[in-house]
Structures are given as C-alpha cells and as structure tokens.
C-alpha cells in the first residue's frame, strides 16, 4: 500500500510540466551530418543541431577548429534551394580572427558566392550583426568570434537561430568553460603534440563524451 502510493506520487511529480528530463527530450531527428562518423554517432539526431547555437571552446587557433565544420558547411552550400525572394544557403563569418582563405575554402567544397564576411569594429556590433544574420532567414550558418558572450547574449543568439532557421557557431576561449550558456551544444577542442581532443561538454538530448583525433 505505501509502496503503491510512492510510485503514484512519483508519477504525479513527473507529470508536472516543470520537470525536465534530459532523456525524454525528443532529440532533433534531423541533425546536420558533421561528415565525421565518429562524431555523428555521439551527437543527438546524428549530427550538428540545426537551428540552434553551437559553442566551440578552443585553446588556440590552428587545431582544426574550422576543419571540424567544413564538411557540414559544404553540404549546406550544396543543398540550398533557390526559392524567391529569400536566397538561403549563405555562410556568414562575423568578426573572424584572420582572413578566411578562399582557395582553401574552395578545396573544402564551399561555394564562395555565398560567403559573407562581416567585420564589425566593436564587440557589441559582433553580437548585433550575428543576430541580424541569424534571424534574416538567409544565412544557413553564422560563424562568430565574440570577445564576450554572456548567458543572455547566448540566449538571444539561440532564439535568433530558431527564428531564422539558421545554425549559429560561436568560437570562444577555453576560459569560458565555466560560464553558463544557452547553447544547444558545447564542444571543447584542444590539441597537443600527440593529437587533438574533442570533448562534448553539453549536448541537448545527448550526453557528454570525449573523442580523440577527429580532425
């Protein structure tokens, strides 16, 4: 009798809409394949979360942080349907730290005609530009390199990504690891002389994991 009442009260509690269970979250079925089978297996939906914010925490540039995205970006360029009046499939780069090099992008299969480089002069404009690009419905993906990205800003980016059906990728330093974020996916990419290490810190509908030498 007491046992029975216990389970029923637990069920009642779980029915409460305020209780959120990670496992029960219907994971996004249509993830965007990353092009790395090893990574796809670990991501919910079998790939990058579309229409959401992905954060990649990196220790330094030059450890394959772009290479990680290239197969997915190339597939976005290729699949873009040309419907009027909006022309989707653009890839916006907001405040990149160096010059994205077109010959290498072409080698990766990126369509240069759909590249938009935005170099705002102030950090507040980085977030504004990214938000504009995300919510425009034109950009399939928006890569941004903000100086700071607080919880509220990440939430805004997440909402803008949902509104414009766009994929936001924010590159941040490793020090941001302990800051709260609304991103659907947080990755940490690091490297040493032996190889690279990719850690999934947070994944909506998935679980943390560590991968070695993906890129």
């Amino acid at each position: 009798m007491p046992r029975n009442s216990d389970t029923s009260s637990l069920e009642k509690l779980l029915e409460n809409p305020r209780v959120w269970r990670a496992r029960s979250q219907p994971g996004p079925a249509d993830g965007l394949s990353s092009g790395y089978a090893q990574l796809d297996r670990l991501l919910p939906g079998g790939g990058w979360p579309r229409q959401a914010l992905t954060e990649i925490l990196i220790e330094q540039y030059g450890i394959g942080e772009l290479q990680l995205l290239m197969p997915a970006l190339a597939s976005l360029c290729a699949e873009a349907p040309g419907t009027e009046p909006v022309e989707p499939g653009w890839i916006a780069w907001v405040a990149p730290p160096f010059q994205p090099y077109p010959p290498a992008l072409q080698n990766c299969g990126i369509d240069l005609a759909r590249m938009l480089i935005v170099r705002p002069k102030h950090d507040s404009e980085v977030l504004w530009s990214a938000e504009q690009a995300l919510s425009s419905g034109t950009c399939a993906a928006v890569l941004l390199w903000p100086q700071v990205l607080d919880d509220q800003a990440s939430r805004r980016l997440q909402l803008a990504a949902e509104k414009g059906a766009s994929w936001a990728i924010a590159f941040r330093p490793l020090s941001a690891r302990h800051e709260p974020s609304a991103a659907a996916l947080r990755l940490e990419l690091s490297a040493n002389h032996r190889g690279t290490r990719l850690a999934i810190l947070k994944s909506r509908g998935g679980s943390p994991a560590v991968l070695h030498d993906v890129v």
Partner: peptide, 17 residues
C-alpha cells in the same frame, strides 16, 4: 520577418560601414 541577402547586407552596412 525574413529578408533577402541584399537587405541583410544593407542593414549590416548601414550600421557598421
């Protein structure tokens, strides 16, 4: 609420140059 690439580029350019 969607706008075309040119509109987006215009808006961005209007604010940041």
């Amino acid at each position: 609420h969607y706008y075309s690439m040119s509109q987006l580029a215009e808006r961005l350019a209007a604010r940041i140059g």
